[in-house]
Design a protein around this nucleic acid. Structure first.
Lengths: 334, 334
DNA sequence: CTGAAAGCGCTTACAG
DNA sequence: CTGAAAGCGCTTACAG
């Protein structure tokens, strides 16, 4: 391994100077700078990032804690972070939390033990108050996909009320008034906000949500299948179901069809997220696009700026808007 | 931030001793060990991993470079690595290469700049010779999903010949003799090996592969659709298509059906990988299971052991076997 | 503009 | 079994 001292010696300058050209900091004459750069290039020198981190007290790494990177939503999120991070010459550390609070905390602590302040959390397990406490402690902590008022400028979130509204309005416009929902409960209360939006849209038309038609559970495709069964066996009236995410929607879609119920002719389904699977199902899935990749990039960038004192801290709120993507799973009754 | 010296002072011992109990190294009396542990616990001390890495010249991090973590195959791979890594108290750094050779090399170099030797590469862009050179340089480099003879004990790979054979035999057993293939070309030559396996199976029955029926291209679902169109417009005879992966298979499956060609009655399709999408398509996708998660865990573990001198170096070859997962996309002609 | 020196928070021979 | 000291490879005031 070749060190900064080796470079300094070879270039006939001091370590300080090499460090300065490396970091583009302090004044160095153009001549010397050029020369040192050449030597660095020639020797193929790469600074040791541990030494650097130790001495400067900052690491060029962002840590991501997310439920489970093998799930599409999470992997798209991670990919967004990865892209921005590579662009800014940072690295990305990833930890799966499996939605377990202890894991989330451990992951964050282990990042901090490294002096790492750029931490992105996509958490369903920690409470608002816990996240607020962490954010106060950790300058670069950014919460993805969740809104917490007290740390609004550290949250990169989606307008879930609007999302619910958009979904419901689309259904209403196509003649659907009896809406069932398949929801997944989380600390983040996404589900509640979406239901709120759906309620708003219905109320505007003088209609209301049937609380019995809001089904809950845990899972993905399997949950969709399970709740579809539940719906089929129930006495509920519904012409469309709004699902918490695309996986649940896809599961439901298949269960309905496997039981001889046509989608969308007999029952319509609308998903959420706009994952790649939406074009794979038959019928393809109409869904709400969740700009998770953009949000991830934005969050990573925000976190880096937050820690990097030179950049002005952004006190804005970071809100993203959902959009409807029309495909074939919602029937036009009229 | 609280340091090792703080702990030492509080405990009334030297830094060396604290370090020893931290690392479970050297002799420390039970009494002192106990006491120091208590102080550590009480103070909530966490060692700085940068300092540790710098002093000891080893980092407890494994770096993964993979084409694109937003794709399911890659994310399952990453998830496997993540799981093992968490288990062994390591962390995982991830970089997307987008199948670009420069990116792969840069990622590896940036890992090394950190003194990181535990590097896992899932590469389609680097040549065998380049990987061999890297492996010689980097003690803990492990190649996932590719076999290179010269560094056989550093490769964790799947028997692709067997995979092709299994797929073809399954088709043959169901009465299919005219097999088309949708392949994706890579440096790794997976495609060639699978074709070899398919050829083997056909030859055993006195049949042979029609080279014109081997279609190539780049992409996922879109490629499947494109090649399906190509197949439909061609004069080729085929009753089944073996796809390079599930995404391609799913795309083809939908294209056929969208054009009124029934799957599997008119044409059968067999995928590869056994991703979660296999149960989402209609018909569900018969496929070859690729134990990528297990392979990822195995590879991560191998890499750690390779670097960790205390563990004996494993000179074995690390071969995994594919298995067929039967679903609904292959028709029994007889 | 440039260099000498101290320091970042650990680990690890070396003594004892 | 335990401690003092040097060193890991950088950065960053501090002088000049």
């Amino acid at each position: 391994m070749i060190t900064l001292d080796d470079v300094a010696q070879k270039a006939g300058v001091s370590a300080s100077t090499v460090s300065r050209v490396l970091n583009n900091t302090g004044r160095v004459s153009d001549k010397v700078r050029e020369h040192v750069k050449n030597v660095i290039e020639a020797m193929g020198y790469q600074p040791n990032s541990n030494a650097r981190a130790l001495a400067s007290k900052r690491t060029e790494v962002v840590g991501l804690v997310t439920p489970n990177i093998s799930l599409s939503f999470n992997s798209v999120l991670a990919s967004g972070v990865s892209e921005l991070v590579q662009q800014r010459n940072y690295k990305m550390l990833v930890t799966n939390s499996y939605n377990d609070k202890r894991n989330e905390i451990n992951a964050i602590n282990s990042f901090r033990a490294q002096g790492l302040e750029n931490i992105l959390v996509h958490s369903h397990a920690l409470s608002d108050r816990e996240l607020v406490a962490l954010a106060t402690d950790i300058k670069g902590l950014v919460v993805i996909n969740r809104f917490i008022k007290k740390i609004a400028h550290r949250c990169v979130w989606l307008d879930n009320v609007e999302a619910g509204k958009v979904a419901a309005e689309y259904c209403l416009n196509r003649g659907h008034t009896k809406i069932a929902m398949m929801m997944h409960k989380h600390q983040s209360n996404d589900d509640k906000r979406r239901i709120e939006g759906i309620t708003l849209a219905l109320n505007e038309k003088g209609l209301s949500v049937n609380p019995d038609a809001i089904l809950y559970g845990k899972g993905g495709e399997d949950l969709g299948r399970k709740l579809a069964k539940q719906l089929i066996e129930s006495e509920l009236e519904y012409t469309t179901v709004i699902a918490y995410n695309d996986l649940i929607a896809a599961g439901a879609l298949n269960e309905f069809q496997d039981q001889g119920i046509r989608v969308p002719e007999d029952v319509s389904i609308i998903g959420f997220d706009n994952l790649f699977i939406c074009t794979l199902t038959r019928p393809s899935l109409t869904t709400i696009h969740h700009p998770i990749c953009e949000m991830a990039k934005y969050a990573a960038n925000l976190s880096i700026n937050l820690v990097d004192a030179e950049t002005e801290t952004n006190k804005d709120t970071h809100l993203f808007l959902p959009t409807l993507v029309e495909r074939d799973s919602v029937y036009a009754i009229q």
